[in-house]
Design a protein around this nucleic acid. Sequence first.
DNA 1: GGGTGTGTGTAGTATATACTACACACAGAG
DNA 2: CTCTGTGTGTAGTATATACTACACACACCC
Lengths: 117, 117
Amino acid sequence: MNLFGDHIRQRREELKAQNRDFSVRKVAAKVGLEPSYLSKIERGEQAPPSEEKIKVLAEVLGEDRDVLLALAGKVSSDLQEAIRRRPLLFAELIREIKDMPDHAVLRLVREVRDGDW
Amino acid sequence: MNLFGDHIRQRREELKAQNRDFSVRKVAAKVGLEPSYLSKIERGEQAPPSEEKIKVLAEVLGEDRDVLLALAGKVSSDLQEAIRRRPLLFAELIREIKDMPDHAVLRLVREVRDGDW
DNA sequence: GGGTGTGTGTAGTATATACTACACACAGAG
DNA sequence: CTCTGTGTGTAGTATATACTACACACACCC
């Protein structure tokens, strides 16, 4: 059950197959971590790093930051702040749609994005 | 800037004016905290307690849990989990509506709640 | 076979989080 | 004047978070 570690290891290995700049050491340097620490994270021996580091890692690996944060069991602080600013509205909205199927949520997103909201 | 502490102290004092069961000691006992700890929280000398304790406190004080959590700088774990399950959909939705005025978000909430979503 | 790069093992650290336990001083009630 | 309840001060603790520093063994290159 090492979702985060397995995911970034696989992604890094993919990139490494095409470009030598994706060794543990190189990626760790780009993110600003010790190589041994990143290695342990990939193998699930250490918990995922901080939100900040995960965001840089997502950039380096060309992945979506919110997906990577989710795999790490975290939620981006800007989303949390949006909820904290209007807790009643956001809490109700999220609880209302949290069990809806993907297509329904997607339709809602599109409606909001394209509509006159 | 002690939003959480000031808020719960004021609320507790209000209730205490009508009912002796809302002293620091009584409330702390109901929530499951040491009185001195609650006192320090109210005065901002200590950070707000855990999510669990805040939820019990909201119940005891008759307040909305999400509002209290927001004042404590937190977001309920069930909302976070909803986002983590579908990070792409939820992140986009929240970022799309986070700067919309209250009435627009409220209209959206109502539409989702009452509609055939 | 010496240098370079690779992943990883060992052994720590600093800071934050989330509290408890106990004692003290004061106020009002009987 | 003592008992009860009140808020609060002092002094801790356990656990988690988020890492660093350094060394080691192996593999490939020339």
